[in-house]
Every structure is written in structure tokens, then in C-alpha cells.
Amino acid sequence: MNRRSLLLAAGAVGVTTAVGGAAAAIAADDPEAGRKSRPMLTWELTGGFVPAGWSALRAPRLVAYDDGVLIADAQKRLRVGAGEIRSLRNHATTVLRDPANAHRRQGAPMIADVPSTVFTARTNGRKFSLQFEGLEETRRDRAYPAAAYSLLDHCAQLRDRVNRSGAGFHPDAVRAIVVLLDAAQPTTATVPPWPAGVPVPRFRKDEFVTQLDLRDRQARALMRAVPRPEQPQWPVFKLPDGRRAQLNWRFLLPHE
């Protein structure tokens, strides 16, 4: 990533730190209640000190759907029984409906630049969500109530199971993340043109990070041009206007 991207990420971290220590609880009517592919539970990481573009590229660690499908990291999928989905829903709802479970213990140490964990559960037309700053990193210090770590363990066990035993998740739908490079930044390699068949991204004034959700033919064109790279390696392409941009992508989830 270029220096400008890193500076933007640093600014974003300050905002996350300011609000992450408080319980970010939601208990309200679920606006997605009528959607066919709505997730029953999501486990996500947000914020932390990451370069620009990484937050959009970072897929939820686990998504569970009402039909029993679990998807881990937007890479593996596994269908489980109704009993396991019911157990997960009941556990998550019990923890997340109580905002006290996201209150840090007084005197618990703060860890800078770590991401926040966000759990969201949906049941009976209602949505419950809590945010925990540095949940995994503060386990040894017991910064949060035991219920929070219990839900983390439950979700982590399911995620490990999906990644270990699940099938590959490869839909014809991707999220492309595009980051403009500074014009003055040197390059030693020949920069290829923007991939054919992939829409050219548009950037608003002073914007240098954007994303494109692509499906079907456009998604396949991107995947041909950029075979799934290792995430630290963001290929560079030349836009039609001559600017250079870094590009990466991940698979879109059914509800996105």
C-alpha cells in the first residue's frame, strides 16, 4: 500500500478507538427480516490498524444462515443441522440482547490498534448486536464478561469446523477493492492495462479507495485477470486515464 493509504488507515483507527470501548448495542426491528438470504448470525472484525482497502476486503469470519449453511471467511461453506442452528441462535441471542455483556471490566488494560469484534444475531424479526474492542486480545485479562468469550468460543469452533471440513465457496460474485496509487510513486515493472470486461472504477473528488460488487460475466472477467492472489500482493493496473491502481477482491456472500 502507498503512504497515503496508510495515513488514511491511521486516521480511521482513531475513530474506532474512540467508540470501540463502549457497548455498541442494537436491539431493534430487523429491516432485513423479509430477505430470503438474510444471515441468522454474523461474526465480523472491524477497524484496527490496517491499510486502506483492507477493511472492505476483510470478509466476516463466520456467517450462519437460517437454512443451516455456514460460511467461513467467504472461502468455505458447510451445512449443519437444524439443532445446531437453533443452539447457535439461542446462545447468540441470550448474550447479545444484554448490553452489559459488552461492558469492559473497570481497570482492564487497553490494547492499541486492535480490531473490534462485532456479533449480530437475528431472530423473530429482531436484530441484536454488540461490539467488543480487542475481544480476542483481552481474553487473558478477562476484560469482558465470561458470556462474551463463551460466544466467541462457540463461533470459533464452528468456523474451525467449516474451514476444516467444508467445501470451497466459489460463487460468480465478487467484491473488488481498488486503491489509487500516488502519481509520484515509482514502479519498476510494466503496468498492464485495466482488465477487459471489468468496469472501470469511478472515484469521487479526493477519494482514492472504492469498491465494486460484480456478478456473473463481470465477476468472471475479474477472476480471470486476477487469479485469487495472496492478500498481501495487490496487483497494479493502469486505468484508462493513465492513473495506476492496486486491485484485490473477495467472494460476495449470499446476503451482500
Rank of each mutant, 00 (worst) to 15 (best):
R202V: 11
L212T: 07
M40V: 15
D213Q: 14
G125W: 04
L135I: 03
T138F: 01
P60D: 06
L45A: 07
D213G: 06
R164W: 03
A147M: 05
D67S: 00
I71Y: 11
E136I: 03
A25W: 14
E230D: 14
R4L: 11
V191H: 02
G166Y: 05
L158N: 00
E44C: 06
A56V: 05
R228E: 13
G107A: 08
L247Y: 08
D73P: 04
G166I: 02
T123G: 04
P199C: 06
G168A: 15
P186E: 04
R77G: 02
T16G: 13
V114L: 10
P31C: 04
P232E: 06
L247S: 07
D141M: 09
L152V: 01
V198K: 02
P115V: 00
Q157C: 06
E84R: 13
H255Y: 07
D216E: 15
D206R: 14
E137I: 03
G14M: 11
F119I: 01
R58P: 06
I85E: 10
T117Y: 10
S55M: 09
F49D: 12
R79I: 05
W43D: 14
V95F: 02
A9L: 06
H91I: 08
I26V: 15
A28C: 05
A147D: 14
V226H: 07
N163P: 00
A25Y: 10
W54T: 13
E32A: 15
N101I: 07
T187Y: 07
A189H: 10
D241N: 07
L135M: 00
Y149E: 07
V114N: 05
R3I: 12
H154N: 07
P193V: 11
G11H: 10
R250A: 01
P31A: 08
P235T: 06
A25M: 09
A225L: 08
E32M: 12
V226T: 10
C155I: 07
D160M: 06
L152Q: 11
T93F: 12
R250D: 01
P229F: 05
Q75A: 15
T123L: 11
T93H: 12
A156T: 14
F208E: 07
Q131K: 15
F49Y: 12
R3S: 13
F119Q: 01
L96A: 02
A196Y: 10
S87T: 13
D213H: 12
T210V: 03
V191A: 00
P199W: 07
L8Y: 13
G68M: 12
H103K: 15
P227S: 09
R97G: 08
D67C: 00
V114G: 01
L247P: 06
T188V: 04
C155M: 13
L8V: 04
N248L: 01
W43F: 13
R89N: 03
N2F: 07
L152P: 00
Q211Y: 13
R164Y: 02
R105S: 14
T46L: 10
N163W: 03
R38C: 05
D67Y: 04
I26H: 08
L214D: 01
T210P: 06
